[in-house]
Amino acid sequence: MSVQPAMPKCWRIESKPHKFCPGCGHGLVLKALGQAIDELGIQDKIVFGCDIGCSLLSWDFFNCDTIQTHHGRTTPVVTGIKRANPDVIAVAYMGDGGGYAIGSQHLVNASARNERITAILVNNTQYGMTGGQMAPTTMPGQKTETSPYGRDPEKTGYPTQGPEMVAAITPEGAYVARGTVANVKQLKGFIKKALENQIAGNGFSFVEALSTCPTNWRTNAEETWNFVEKEMTKYFKVGEIKVPGPREKEGQ
């Protein structure tokens, strides 16, 4: 067993190496989250909820209290916990299917209510656990198991722009950003600010992380990084989309 020296302190060593496929971006997102938790010193306050889909494999990932929920339902479970015990720092961890398809009503309404929780959504443009079907985030022309000839936006719409939507519907105080596993340092910064925003009680905080799935993309290392860095960013702009404070700071 080889454990990387850079492993965050709040990671649970007993459950490593983790169960994600080689080249999967989840490990990097969870590393960014782990580092943010360590830097803020909030390991004992975190309640981590994970969705169904590949994100469920994080159910024993941290030395933090963790609840693995149902597909799309992590947002309400974590909301319920936070409402009942506002002292915890609640994180809802989900994929694009869980957040933008089956659980979209929960994301929309948690945003509108400005729930004091942090949602982290991993966007890898398809349903990984179930074998690579088209997701709300699948790129135009992208081939998946249920769009074998490529996603046709005329028939199935364009990819969901989640952070932009959340930014549009959240009241003041929300924090919204899109990071990428191609820049873990920046991603960690976004997640840290999202957690700080919850701790400050400002409002909903939401970070989408552009991620990789070489297993279902059927890509080699080079193609994988090319897709996440060059292709996905054509459609999904990386950066902070909404930060608490005066309006003029937005979209910088």
């Binding site: 149902h70 309400p76 479970v77 319920g80 009942a84 015990n85 915890v88 309404n109």
Partner: peptide, 18 residues
């Protein structure tokens, strides 16, 4: 909540919080 799915799952959350 926004629907009964959410009402049920938030109640689950409330119980988890003790």
């Amino acid at each position: 909540t926004e629907d009964e799915l959410s009402a049920g799952f938030t109640t689950v959350g409330g119980v988890l919080a003790g």
